[in-house]
Design a protein around this nucleic acid. Structure first.
Lengths: 184, 184
DNA sequence: GGGCTCATGTAAGTGGTTACATGATTAT
DNA sequence: ATAATCATGTAACCACTTACATGAGCCC
């Protein structure tokens, strides 16, 4: 059975402990979302498929509270996860960045508008950076013990910084060029 | 009419001159692909829609060679492009990176396997970096004159470098930690 | 009682890829 | 002659999002 990448997100999350679909979604939203998003519309059907495939096992939670179904990895699920982790390339990489796309086509804009565009790209990345920084304390206390490496969060923050700096730098160059152009 | 982002890729490409669908696809493959990919399955139907919407105009190319249909922007297409370029946020941003995802879930791996994973991420980014560097000469000669800014290509290269460095750094840390762990 | 969070689920739609079919022209 | 490239197109499929429906328990 060919598993989607998103299936491995679920397997990976379950490796860290029993979880409901709802909990998996909440975890995704504060972690993998930034490099692999997933919605309810994927998670719930995928949980069903994975259970049918014998990679996970669910049971109604004993707590007499709300109706909830907790899943855990089976041995074969753990194997599938490990196989995926150690499989070689190719690694799926996909980037869709409307800001860069606009700037790529920004020739019709005057310098002021170009700078404005770069500023809004920068501001959106600054927002994400803030979100990631907010997660840091929690991620730090969780480090080690089968939990995700902190370096992934650091990658995320550094990536935001990278884009932010590229924007600043590019804004600066445009402003400089415009000034010198007007002089000549 | 709500245009998809990919529609703007087409409008943007046509702003630089008359193009056939085939040519647009070829251009996308050496430029926007890295931050906004598009396939024939999108481009040809979208050309039809855009023409029906009056944003572009196509005509059978006069050259008596192959059957080909060249499109150009109409005034309203140009307006639509400009409106999109100057529209504010939100800017669609999406990243799917299987390498980082695997590393995020890499707790079950032993240090050697983790390093191996990082190495393969690094190698794939090095490949892309090479592709981008190969484009540079062409991009440099094209700069200015309503053409895309070189800084976008530089962004692409710097992004590859960023990931490559993050991998190296993280590999180094794992190797160091493992060595010190064995000593104790 | 009312609003929030927990919790599960699905239907409809979107956006996109893959793979194929077709055929003309050019280069070797 | 034949392989590569130019060129247009589409059908089937896949992954994913959005928006909604439903309801229970929790907190004020």
């Amino acid at each position: 059975m060919g598993l989607s990448k998103t299936a491995f997100v679920i397997l990976g999350m379950l490796r860290m402990g029993k979880r409901t679909g709802y909990e998996i979604k909440a975890l995704v939203d504060v972690s993998t979302r930034h490099f692999w998003a997933a919605s309810y519309g994927q998670i719930y059907p995928e949980l069903k498929r994975l259970e049918e495939g014998g990679l996970i096992e669910g049971q109604a939670a004993e707590t007499g509270k709300r109706r909830r179904r907790e899943y855990e990895l089976t041995a074969s699920g753990e194997r599938a996860l490990h196989d995926w982790l150690t499989a070689g390339p190719p690694l799926h990489v996909e980037l869709r960045h409307e800001g860069v796309l606009r700037f790529f086509f920004s020739a019709p804009l005057d310098p002021g508008e170009q700078v404005e565009l770069l500023r809004s790209i920068r501001s959106e990345h600054a927002t994400v950076r803030g979100e990631l920084e907010a997660i840091r304390p929690a991620a730090e206390t969780l480090e080690g013990e089968g939990n995700p490496p902190l370096s992934v969060l650091e990658w995320g923050i550094a990536y935001q910084d990278f884009v932010i700096n590229w924007c600043s730098e590019t804004e600066r160059r445009i402003i400089e060029q415009t000034a010198s152009g007007q002089r000549s």
